[in-house]
């Protein structure tokens, strides 16, 4: 399988406001969120970025999704540069994160049509895809209800359907099961497995070990903005549980004794 995503020396820093400095009890004015990050993702695999909160997972995914620009480095998605050809990259990806919200005034039905139109999907293709995805997620039952009247699970299902409305080849999910009830979380993970079966490439971020173990072919462990380990799950674990191996890497990266 060829590499569909090549991340090359991505770096990103954020300036800390005085308020943030005070809140985090630090004097540093600039926070390096991602440091010189490089990895590749193969076509048709599920790649997981595993790390604690603040490790730089979301920042990395946002750079790949072209929502923010890297300070240095680049990422090539199916040959398109996230720095030089962001619109091309956006055409190829589906991005789902909790920070992307649905317009509360509109119904799932309208939102699906709108985002399909934005991606230039022909009406007949759109309708067939809508029928399929809405049936799969059980959206039909609330397709005509305004998003403001939907539960978190319903909204997440709608967002999920919309994020793949244009049948992207690469799907990027930031913490896909965060805040979901067990039923909806199961629907999401099953869907991700189905997508892989359909030959789609998935890049996800999470801090849930079991999710990585269940879904991912390969994993990158991200600590303090740097990639500590990257490889196939069996390779990374080396016969241990993922959780144990993660903490080995974590304490080694922090220069601390394992507790």
């Amino acid at each position: 399988m060829s590499d569909i995503l090549i991340v090359q020396n991505l770096s990103k820093s954020f300036r800390l406001s005085a308020k943030q400095q005070k809140l985090e009890n630090t004097n540093e004015k600039v926070r390096r969120a991602v440091r010189d990050l490089s990895f590749t993702v193969k076509e048709g695999e599920i790649f997981g970025l595993l790390g604690p909160n603040g490790a730089g997972k979301t920042t990395t995914l946002r750079m790949i999704a072209t929502l923010i620009k890297p300070d240095a480095g680049d990422a090539l998605l199916d040959g398109a540069s996230v720095v030089k050809e962001p619109e091309k990259v956006r055409q190829k990806i589906g991005f789902l994160t909790s920070e992307l919200k649905l317009e509360e005034f509109f119904t799932p039905d309208y939102l699906f049509d709108f985002f399909s139109e934005v991606h230039g999907i022909p009406k007949d293709v759109r309708n067939a895809r809508k029928k399929d995805l809405f049936a799969r997620f059980g959206i039909d039952a609330f397709a005509q209800v305004k998003a403001s009247g939907l539960s978190t699970g319903m909204k997440q299902k709608t967002s999920l359907a919309i994020s793949v409305a244009h049948d992207p080849s690469v799907i990027i999910f930031d913490e896909p099961t965060n805040g979901l009830d067990v039923i909806t979380a199961r629907t999401v993970t099953d869907f991700l497995l189905d997508l892989r079966r359909d030959g789609k490439t998935i890049v996800l971020s999470t801090h849930i070990f079991s999710l990585v173990e269940k879904l991912c072919d390969r994993v990158g462990i991200l600590i303090d903005g740097g990639l500590t380990a990257c490889g196939e799950l069996s390779e990374i674990c080396g016969g241990m549980s993922l959780e144990d191996r993660f903490f080995d890497y974590y304490y080694a990266a922090k220069g601390e004794e394992k507790r």
């Binding site: 999704a65 072209t66 929502l67 619109e87 091309k88 956006r90 055409q91 991005f95 920070e99 992307l100 919200k101 649905l102 317009e103 509360e104 985002f115 934005v118 991606h119």
Partner: peptide, 17 residues
């Protein structure tokens, strides 16, 4: 309003210029 509600980001992630 779209910035505040997070829907602007949803729009910015589309291939629209």
């Amino acid at each position: 309003g779209e910035k505040e509600r997070g829907t602007m980001a949803t729009l910015l992630i589309t291939p629209l210029k």
